[in-house]
């Protein structure tokens, strides 16, 4: 999205989106399979540093990262901390119970959440949708009908938003009262969703007709040229190297300077 538009281009911006996607997916699986608290803390820290260095966006926007980070941390950590199994009980109040095991496990999940967030944002802040889909079509043979449907839909989204704002005003004008109670709330939601979706369906249908009128053959990959060529370059190697080094740093940091040194949080 243009909101994350960079003010300076870094290596990561110049990397082929498919390579980026591949590397980030690998990082993602690595994080999923990491069960060591210290390693995950270092991962969260190092990927956050990478994000700050490589996203290339204005510094004030980086503050916005705090929101997904906090959310990822809290949402991931809280239930495990408060409701996890464990023998060494530190604190208990009604159904809430914090044990040593559940605390560390929750902490682990919280940092894991941050690591995921940083990895995801590394991709999102440095990749334009259009570039990504062009790369997917050319390098991974994604069928054009899917790629262009996505790109066209993204183009239509701001119109949906505009209509939402108009609808809100229109409901006010028509004198629709604020809703109370779950039943009313559902009815109220319907007052928004039905018109917006109806307009969207009609609009999507028209765009599809216009695309086909422009000789777009969505079914077979007709001989196609591409306006934006997707090529591999030395930046791909640099990015892979850089992120690999980041991973190594995380593991090295965890083994030389551990924070807790408790190892696997599953305590098996």
């Amino acid at each position: 999205m243009s909101f994350w538009g960079p003010v300076r281009h870094t290596w990561l911006h110049r990397t082929n989106p498919v390579v980026k996607l591949g590397v980030i997916c690998l990082l993602f699986f690595m994080t999923v399979l990491t069960h060591d608290l210290d390693v995950i803390i270092y991962q969260a820290m190092i990927f956050t540093v990478c994000l700050l260095l490589l996203s290339g966006i204005q510094p004030w926007k980086m503050l916005l990262f705090l929101i997904p980070f906090m959310m990822a941390f809290l949402a991931s950590a809280s239930s495990m901390m408060l409701f996890g199994k464990g023998d060494t009980i530190w604190w208990q109040w009604g159904l809430f119970k914090i044990s040593e095991e559940s605390f560390y496990r929750g902490l682990h999940l919280g940092f894991k959440g941050i690591a995921f967030a940083a990895e995801g944002l590394l991709l999102v802040t440095t990749t334009q949708s259009v570039d990504l889909f062009y790369a997917l079509m050319q390098k991974l043979k994604l069928r054009p009908k899917y790629a262009y449907s996505f790109m066209a839909s993204i183009r239509l989204l701001p119109m949906v938003w505009e209509e939402f704002l108009i609808r809100r005003q229109a409901l006010k004008v028509r004198g629709v009262q604020p809703a109370r109670g779950p039943r009313r709330l559902v009815v109220r939601a319907g007052l928004y969703v039905v018109p917006l979706l109806a307009q969207s369906i009609r609009r999507a249908h028209r765009v599809a007709a216009a695309m086909e009128a422009k000789q777009f053959d969505g079914d077979r990959s007709q001989a196609r040229t591409y306006y934006y060529p997707s090529q591999y370059s030395r930046y791909d190697v640099l990015t892979v190297g850089l992120l690999a080094a980041a991973v190594c740093c995380a593991y090295a940091g965890a083994s030389y300077y551990p924070w807790f040194g408790i190892g696997d949080v599953r305590f098996n």
């Binding site: 259009v130 262009y148 790109m151 066209a152 993204i154 183009r155 239509l156 119109m159 609009r203 028209r206 765009v207 007709a209 216009a210 695309m211 009128a213 422009k214």
Partner: peptide, 14 residues
């Protein structure tokens, strides 16, 4: 080739 009525629903790219 075709030109349709609605200026907002003829394009798929930004």
């Amino acid at each position: 080739a075709y030109v349709f009525q609605d200026p907002d629903t003829q394009f798929c790219m930004p």
